[in-house]
């Protein structure tokens, strides 16, 4: 594997975005959605998720390490590209740029989010509905979270589309187009779940 570091790196970067990060996101959004059924249900769900066996192991190997690797390598990828949407206004070129901008924004958002939830919990803050209610009790933080959720769902949905090309699954233009529609549905579906949850936490819904 003499000069194939980049090849393996990019392939693994692409894979990590789907497995395990994409799967973790699905589980994370599903747990959060319990708030729609009420605080009590959410608190019960949070207690179960917080009390799973070998939780720290799962957190480290399924969440922390994959996200850090994906993030660090992703920032490197973003900075080796250049935005030329001013000259080439094609849809896919916009997706290319948005994928990189959303990725950079997510480094900031996820760091912030982990700081005020997971690290706060490690410092002794109780993980229940009131934690999130306190975080999004002002319009600025609510807006920050909504943008963060949409950046996440976009980055995952568009990342699924590029994953299928990177791993050689969708080769024909027809299959790539079909995958665009699948990615759009993933974006809409996950955005609905995420935004509805955060608005419920904020007491807007």
């Amino acid at each position: 594997m003499a000069n194939h570091r980049d090849f393996v790196g990019r392939k693994i970067h692409s894979l990590l975005g789907v497995i395990p990060i994409g799967l973790f996101l699905l589980s994370h959004f599903t747990t959060n959605y319990f708030i729609v059924r009420g605080e009590e249900d959410f608190n019960k769900a949070a207690e179960i998720v917080g009390g799973v066996p070998y939780r720290l192991f799962l957190e480290v190997f399924v969440i922390f390490i994959p996200i850090i690797l994906h993030g660090v390598y992703g920032v490197y990828i973003a900075f080796t590209g250049s935005a030329n949407t001013g000259r080439y206004t094609y849809f896919r070129n916009w997706m290319y740029v948005l994928q990189r901008f959303s990725g950079i924004f997510l480094v900031v958002f996820i760091t912030w989010h982990v700081w005020e939830t997971r690290i706060a919990a490690a410092m002794g803050t109780a993980v229940d509905a009131s934690m999130m209610q306190n975080i999004v009790d002002n319009w600025f933080m609510l807006a920050f979270y909504i943008v963060g959720i949409l950046a996440t769902t976009f980055h995952l949905a568009n990342g699924l589309w590029t994953f299928c090309i990177t791993w050689g699954i969708t080769q024909s233009p027809a299959s790539q187009k079909a995958m665009s529609y699948v990615a759009a549905l993933v974006f809409i579906g996950l955005s609905f779940v995420g935004v509805r949850s955060i608005l419920t936490f904020a007491g807007v819904l």
Binding site: Y88, Y90, R92, N93, M95, Y96, Q171, P173, Q176
Partner: peptide
Amino acid sequence: MQCGNAQNCVEVCPKGIPLTTSIAA
């Protein structure tokens, strides 16, 4: 692996070569 799937290439190719199909292949 340096390809970022922006797919501008296939749009601008004067010969209409299916470059992005080739890249996926």
